[in-house]
Design a protein around this nucleic acid. Structure first.
Lengths: 239, 239
DNA sequence: CGACATCTTGATCTGGATCAAGCCAGGTGG
DNA sequence: CCACCTGGCTTGATCCAGATCAAGATGTCG
């Protein structure tokens, strides 16, 4: 099976054979996590980064007062904490939302890439920058949209991101999150997530059963979300 | 006068003489903008990035429905849209909140740096990654704090960031934003910003007059904000 | 079978939005 | 020099989206 990171980067620019080989060589040391397990702990200094090969993971910021905010959701092919390569100390923890398989990549290997493959370095840099673009889209959605718009926006985003790694089938995707988790993503209570979801269902925009979402009306959902996919950078450009 | 970008990066790691020279060479083509002017326009393909030499700038995402959300605030020394170097197409516009002086850096010059200075490349990468960390702190503040906590958090952040480029005096800083702009940053109405501000004043946490803020009780403000500065990475580490 | 998590529904409360006015300072033009 | 206008700040009144509290319903797993 093709390395999902290679697959993902190929959406954004063309990789040479040597660059692909260099990436493949990163994914040797694999590990697994169960649901709810913490993969990386907040505020600790890191010397490795986590490449998600399978499953869903979340980046969670928790305050002393116990409030949890999910600041990012990651899926197959995402280099979840590539930013820790330059950041060293990380401002959130990473938790498995579903069973996860990862490759653990030592920062020394990444440093070696930056010394030998400038173009590949720019593409890895790009991944962290796209994470930032997603953060901004979330900020805009959280700051200026209604609960329904915000939820719709999240669903649109997840659909396109899953599609890019071939994890959708037609208009259907598996999104096995609890409504409490959705609440932690959107900054809403789980009760309100439930009711908002029912509204979207009532407007025949989507079906959501047992963690499987079917989008019934993409145009309508996109309109409700004011969703504009440019920020996901799903286009090839020379970088 | 020292290049403010050099000054800023020196907070995070040590720069060699050649690296400093390479950065100085970037800041040749300078321009000025007046209050309210758009420096970079949403969705256009970029071939230059903007280094802010003086003034305050905001990254603004606007939806078709006219709602504005400020997703980042930048100050002296910030490489405002360095991310456009790898992203090419940018998901927000950049506007001058005060009169601004900038250096406009062609992406070709940055590509040259990535080919010749791997360590400096990692430090530039770091700047974009810190932007992401700030986005996450904002997400957490917006999603899980009250208006007062969120506002206090923003003030704490701005204070430390301004301090890092020597733009504070004792407990005082110039933050010449209107309450409407603060509202666009926090996702609140300007009316509510006004009232929230009065609460912070009433609790003797700060003074705010004519765009000059004096922090009267840093510990109290930090507590109200649940502010933890790690995410700003104001420490030297080998990167 | 019981225990626990998740989803659902109802009732009530509240933080912040919205609408509307008045106030003040600075800038402009006659 | 004054009249006016504009943009920002402030205050009051009312409204509503979403929080919180509470309790069932459903499902799953040991």
């Amino acid at each position: 099976m093709a390395n999902p990171l290679v697959q993902k980067l190929q959406h954004r620019d063309t990789l040479s054979a040597e660059e692909q080989a260099a990436l493949e060589a990163l994914s040797l040391d694999t590990r697994s996590f169960r649901v709810g397990e913490t993969m990386v702990r907040q505020d600790e200094v890191q010397d490795r980064s986590t490449l998600l090969l399978e499953g869903f993971a979340a980046r969670v910021r928790s305050t002393r007062s116990g409030k949890r905010q999910i600041v990012a959701v990651h899926l197959t092919g995402d280099f979840v904490d590539l930013h820790s390569f330059v950041l060293k100390r990380i401002d959130h923890s990473i938790e498995a939302l579903t069973p996860c398989r990862i490759a653990s990549v030592p920062h020394t290997a990444l440093t070696a890439i930056t010394e030998r493959f400038p173009h590949l370095t720019r593409l890895l840099w790009l991944s962290t920058v796209i994470d930032g673009a997603v953060h901004r889209a979330w900020l805009a959605a959280m700051g200026s949209r209604s609960a329904a718009g915000h939820l719709a926006h999240f669903i649109c985003e997840m659909f396109l991101r899953l599609q890019a790694v071939a994890q959708t089938e037609g208009q259907t995707m598996r999104l096995p999150f609890t409504q409490t988790e959705i609440g932690e993503i959107l900054g809403l209570s789980s009760v309100h997530v439930n009711r908002t979801l029912q509204n979207l269902r009532a407007e025949s925009l989507l079906r959501w059963q047992d963690g499987v979402i079917t989008i019934l009306d993409w145009a309508g959902l996109q309109r409700a979300a004011e969703f504009d996919p440019v920020y996901l950078s799903l286009q090839k450009e020379p970088r």
